[in-house]
Simulated assay, not measured.
Amino acid sequence: MQKSSNISSSWIKDLEMKKSEASWSTWLREGRQYLKAGKGEKNKFNNSILYNLLAMSLEKFVMAILGYNLSMPVNHTFTDLIYSLEKLYPLDTDLRKTILRLETKQEICSFEDYVRTDISDEDIIILREAVKQFEKIANEVCLYEKAPGILFG
């Protein structure tokens, strides 16, 4: 017979695992939704809105990867997300540079250096393609979603 403290400890670990799974799977789903919206027609959204939808998608995909690995970023800027992600997953140098370059288009998290510049059609195309690469990485990393029967019977 198990002691009640062992039962409680096991129950808490199971609850933490489910909570963690709920977080990363929610972020993965939300990343897909933002990406779908970010593929929107030009006449529906201007480039500033598309940029922000794609930025949210990027953030959600990175958060899914981090959450799946029980990790969190220092902050939610592109730089912080990439820095945190690279501790777990090696990124292609060009992909990294692309994201960090596009971050300079809207640096809105700083009180001193608030920056918003025009987002070009080319910026949107490049960001959308980069976010698709992050979606691919998230799909590869978050394996449980694809094969729960194999992992957990």
Rank of each mutant, 00 (worst) to 15 (best):
M1L: 01
M1R: 01
Q2M: 09
Q2G: 03
K3C: 09
S4W: 06
S5M: 07
S5Y: 07
N6R: 10
S9M: 02
S10L: 05
W11P: 00
K13W: 02
K19P: 11
E21M: 10
T26P: 00
W27V: 00
W27F: 15
R29A: 15
Y34P: 00
L35N: 06
L35G: 04
G38R: 01
N43A: 15
N43I: 13
Y51R: 06
L53I: 08
E59Y: 07
K60Y: 00
M63H: 02
A64P: 06
G67F: 01
Y68Q: 03
N69E: 15
P73S: 11
V74T: 15
D80S: 14
L81C: 09
L81R: 01
L81N: 11
I82H: 03
I82P: 00
Y83E: 15
L85N: 07
E86G: 09
L88S: 13
Y89P: 05
T93C: 02
T93I: 11
D94E: 14
R96M: 00
E103D: 12
E103A: 10
E107K: 15
E107Y: 14
I108K: 03
E112R: 07
V115Q: 09
R116S: 11
I119S: 04
D123G: 01
I125Y: 04
R128Y: 10
K132Y: 02
Q133M: 13
E140Q: 10
E145R: 11
E145K: 09
I150Y: 08
I150D: 03
L151E: 13
F152H: 14
F152W: 03
